[in-house]
Amino acid sequence: NQASVVANQLIPISTALTLVMMRSEVVTPVGIPAEDIPRLVSMTVNRAVPLGTTLMPDMVKGYA
């Protein structure tokens, strides 16, 4: 089972991601792979991401 990136807090729309905002967790459905966390830092989300939500590729500008 692959770990995915999960929001560690509410991430408001257009917020630049930082390490403290994300954690890795094995979830269903599978989202962005946890090993991509370093790549996600400073990318922005294009929607509000509630606490505990799995980050999907279409939620992060420039990721997909």
Rank of each mutant, 00 (worst) to 15 (best):
N1K: 15
N1M: 15
N1C: 06
N1D: 12
N1H: 11
N1A: 15
Q2N: 10
Q2S: 12
Q2A: 12
Q2E: 12
Q2L: 12
A3R: 12
A3Q: 11
A3S: 09
A3I: 06
A3K: 11
A3Y: 11
S4E: 00
S4F: 03
V5K: 02
V5A: 09
V5I: 10
V5C: 05
V5P: 03
V6Q: 03
V6S: 01
V6H: 01
A7L: 03
A7N: 01
A7Y: 03
A7E: 00
A7W: 03
A7V: 07
A7D: 01
A7K: 01
N8C: 06
N8S: 13
N8M: 06
N8D: 10
N8W: 04
N8Y: 04
Q9Y: 08
Q9W: 08
Q9E: 08
Q9A: 12
Q9N: 07
L10Y: 15
L10I: 10
L10Q: 14
I11N: 01
I11T: 01
I11V: 06
I11S: 02
P12M: 07
P12F: 04
P12K: 08
P12Q: 09
P12T: 08
I13S: 12
I13P: 11
I13A: 15
I13D: 14
I13H: 13
I13W: 09
S14M: 15
S14N: 15
S14D: 14
S14C: 07
S14I: 04
S14Q: 12
S14Y: 15
T15Y: 07
T15I: 08
T15H: 07
T15P: 00
T15Q: 09
T15D: 02
T15V: 09
A16V: 14
A16W: 06
A16Q: 11
A16H: 09
L17C: 03
L17Y: 00
L17A: 00
L17E: 00
T18S: 09
T18R: 08
T18P: 00
T18Y: 03
L19S: 11
L19C: 06
L19D: 06
L19N: 08
L19F: 12
V20P: 13
V20Y: 11
V20F: 13
V20L: 10
V20S: 09
V20G: 12
M21Y: 05
M21E: 02
M21I: 03
M22K: 00
M22Y: 02
M22Q: 00
M22T: 00
M22P: 00
M22G: 00
M22C: 03
R23S: 08
R23G: 08
R23I: 06
R23P: 02
R23L: 05
S24W: 07
S24N: 05
S24Q: 10
S24Y: 06
S24M: 12
E25N: 09
E25A: 15
E25I: 07
E25W: 06
E25H: 09
V26I: 13
V27L: 05
T28W: 15
T28A: 13
T28H: 13
P29Y: 04
P29I: 05
P29R: 05
P29W: 04
P29G: 03
P29L: 04
P29N: 05
P29D: 04
P29T: 05
P29F: 04
V30R: 15
V30F: 13
V30H: 14
V30G: 14
G31N: 02
G31K: 02
G31P: 01
G31Q: 02
G31L: 02
I32Q: 01
I32D: 00
I32T: 01
I32P: 00
I32A: 01
P33Q: 06
P33A: 12
P33S: 08
A34N: 05
A34F: 05
A34D: 07
E35N: 11
E35L: 14
E35K: 13
D36H: 14
D36E: 14
D36M: 14
D36Q: 13
D36K: 11
D36G: 06
D36L: 11
I37R: 06
I37L: 13
P38E: 10
P38V: 13
P38D: 10
P38F: 11
P38C: 07
P38W: 13
R39D: 07
R39G: 08
R39E: 12
R39S: 12
L40H: 00
V41S: 02
V41Q: 05
V41F: 04
S42E: 08
S42D: 13
S42Q: 10
S42G: 15
S42Y: 10
M43V: 04
M43Y: 10
M43Q: 08
M43T: 04
M43G: 03
T44E: 10
T44H: 11
T44Y: 14
V45W: 02
V45Q: 01
V45M: 07
V45F: 03
V45T: 13
N46Q: 11
N46K: 10
N46I: 10
N46L: 10
N46G: 07
R47L: 09
R47S: 10
R47C: 06
R47F: 08
R47W: 09
R47D: 07
R47H: 09
R47E: 10
A48I: 12
A48L: 13
A48T: 15
A48P: 14
A48Y: 12
A48V: 13
V49Y: 02
V49K: 00
P50M: 07
P50G: 09
P50H: 09
P50V: 06
P50D: 15
P50T: 12
P50Y: 07
L51D: 12
L51H: 14
L51Y: 13
L51A: 15
L51K: 15
G52K: 04
G52S: 06
G52I: 03
G52W: 04
G52P: 02
G52C: 04
G52T: 00
T53W: 11
T53V: 13
T53N: 10
T53F: 11
T53G: 13
T54A: 05
T54K: 04
T54Q: 03
T54L: 04
T54I: 11
L55K: 01
L55F: 09
L55Q: 00
M56S: 07
M56K: 12
M56E: 07
M56H: 07
M56R: 08
M56L: 11
M56I: 08
P57Y: 09
P57A: 15
P57V: 06
P57W: 11
D58N: 13
D58I: 08
D58Q: 11
D58M: 13
D58R: 09
D58Y: 15
D58P: 08
M59Y: 14
M59F: 14
M59V: 08
M59D: 15
V60W: 01
V60F: 05
V60E: 01
V60K: 00
K61T: 12
K61V: 15
K61E: 15
G62R: 06
G62M: 08
G62Q: 11
G62W: 06
G62A: 08
G62I: 04
Y63K: 03
Y63F: 14
Y63A: 03
Y63D: 03
Y63L: 06
Y63I: 04
Y63G: 03
Y63R: 03
A64Y: 09
